[in-house]
């Protein structure tokens, strides 16, 4: 008997953007940008593993709802305008 793909039982599908996960809550250190020192090189944006940085007129805007505080942006910024500060316990 030949069977069609329509006979395969339905499978759960994930279709909701992961922006539902507030991964910023994991953060231990928070990146703080001194925008006056920023050279608009965009390196921080390029190397953020979580796509948590958007560029606004060439300068970074970090979405703290999702930034996990890895510190890559601070480590890669040649102008040294990003520092990591410890989150305060609530």
């Amino acid at each position: 008997m030949s069977r069609s793909y329509e006979d395969i039982p339905l499978t759960p599908i994930s279709d909701t953007p992961s922006t539902m996960n507030m991964t910023g809550l994991w953060r231990v250190f928070r990146p703080v940008v001194d925008l006056d020192k920023c050279k608009k090189c965009t390196l921080c944006w390029k190397f953020c593993p979580d796509a948590a940085i958007v560029l606004v007129d060439g300068k970074p805007k970090i979405d703290l709802r999702y930034c996990k505080g890895c510190g890559i942006c601070a480590n890669e910024c040649l102008a040294e305008c990003i520092i990591m500060v410890k989150e305060e316990a609530e």
């Binding site: 953007p17 992961s18 922006t19 539902m20 996960n21 507030m22 991964t23 994991w26 953060r27 608009k40 090189c41 965009t42 944006w45 390029k46 190397f47 593993p49 979580d50 796509a51 948590a52 560029l55 060439g58 979405d63 709802r65 999702y66 996990k68 505080g69 890895c70 510190g71 890559i72």
Partner: peptide
């Protein structure tokens, strides 16, 4: 100065560890 395509095909909020290379 942007040297790679600006369009993102990944959302923030993945559950990889902070600093995960596999996300990049």
């Amino acid at each position: 100065p942007v040297t790679i395509p600006e369009v993102e095909h990944a959302y923030p909020g993945s559950t990889g560890c902070p600093g995960c290379g596999a996300n990049l």
